[in-house]
């Protein structure tokens, strides 16, 4: 199972992301060299592609990604626009402290290429005629450099750094080994970064119905948040089913593992895998009725968004309790005599 996950899922997913990331860097550099509407549009499209591809790797919170907290450098939102402007004005500032996380990555780029003006002309002007245009362009460069540097640290550990072998050879199910970390990271991603981050917090489902339309992902792009949520959710579903990123064929993964354990509802005899997949389908159905602009949806169609949250919540319980329990995955190193 770990070999399939490493060779057919994680590494190819990282490779795909690297392609999109490289393309975005090229477009970003082109825009920096010659900021105009055409290069902005190219850059923006490349950013959309890379951000969408990111959703397919964020869930691998294991090994180097966990060690270097990859997510913190790529996707902590809402962006801290005041902080970003301060960093731009200063021309410097650390990217390694927790306070800097919302000042970098995709959310910061979102603000810089989508949120600086109501028209593309207005945005381009901030990079051409504005007094701090040069500093702003420099900041774009700093952002992509930082993203590439953190990502390549993680990626090369998998490709040439020997982590792949470490990963597939650490077969125990305790908190320190691959399956434990992978599953704990996967469930945490689903619970905190998909359910809460993308849906629960913006919709107000987790905060007394206080709607926060400005807390959706890719807030400044307006029409991307739903795509990102759907992509991330589908990535979680595919990972659960062990689907190869290269061929789309299912291989050894959580699904086959649970099936081999015979995990099922002892009262109805229905397999846990089927129950989880049925719940994923329900989430997909609830997502499918939403419109692209999630920020508007939480204001005008809040009930439908909240329903997504409710169904995701049920999936969280199944993943977090039924699945980890069936797999006998532990969360800590300390002694335990069986609850």
């Amino acid at each position: 199972m770990l070999t399939n996950i490493a060779d057919n899922i994680i590494v190819p997913a990282y490779a795909n992301f690297k392609t999109k990331m490289d393309a975005m860097t090229t477009k970003s550099d082109a825009f920096a060299a010659k900021p105009d509407k055409a290069s902005l549009a190219d850059f923006r499209q490349a950013w959309v592609d890379a951000y969408t591809e990111w959703q397919k790797v964020e869930l691998f919170d294991v090994g180097p990604a966990e060690q270097y907290t990859l997510r913190n450098f790529f996707n902590i939102y809402p962006a801290n626009t005041t902080g970003i402007e301060e960093y731009i004005a200063a021309g410097s500032g650390s990217f390694d402290v927790p306070l800097s996380y919302p000042k970098q990555g995709f959310p910061a780029l979102d603000y810089l290429i989508n949120g600086l003006g109501s028209t593309d002309d207005a945005i381009v002007a901030r990079y051409t005629t504005a007094t701090d245009a040069a500093k702003r362009i420099a900041y774009l460069k700093r952002l992509t450099t930082q993203m590439n540097s953190v990502f390549s640290t993680v990626y090369t550990q998998w490709t040439t750094g020997g982590y792949r072998d470490t990963f597939i050879n650490c077969t125990a199910l305790n908190a320190g080994c691959s399956t434990g970390k992978l599953v704990n990271g996967y469930v945490l991603n689903y619970e905190r970064y998909i359910r809460s981050g993308k849906i629960g917090i913006p919709s107000g489902a987790m905060t007394n119905g206080t709607v926060s339309p400005d807390k959706v992902e890719a807030y400044y792009k307006k029409d991307l948040a739903l795509t990102l949520a759907k992509t991330a959710h589908q990535a979680s579903v595919d990972f659960f089913n062990g689907k190869s990123v290269k061929t789309g064929q299912e291989g050894p993964g959580l699904k086959s593992y649970l099936n081999s354990l015979g995990a099922k509802d002892s009262q109805t005899g229905k397999s846990l895998v089927d129950i989880v997949n049925a719940q994923f389908d329900l989430v997909n159905q609830k997502l499918s009725v939403l419109k692209a602009n999630l920020s508007d949806e939480v204001k005008t169609n809040n009930t439908a968004v909240t329903q997504v949250y409710t169904e995701m919540q049920k999936a969280v319980r199944m993943l977090k309790v039924d699945m980890t329990s069936a797999m006998s995955i532990t969360i800590t190193y300390t002694d335990n005599d069986g609850d």
Binding site: V316, R317, K320, V321, S325, D337, G338, D339
Partner: peptide, 9 residues
């Protein structure tokens, strides 16, 4: 001892 696999949320 070792009687239950119990997980919760």
């Amino acid at each position: 001892v070792m009687l239950m696999e119990k997980a919760g949320y």
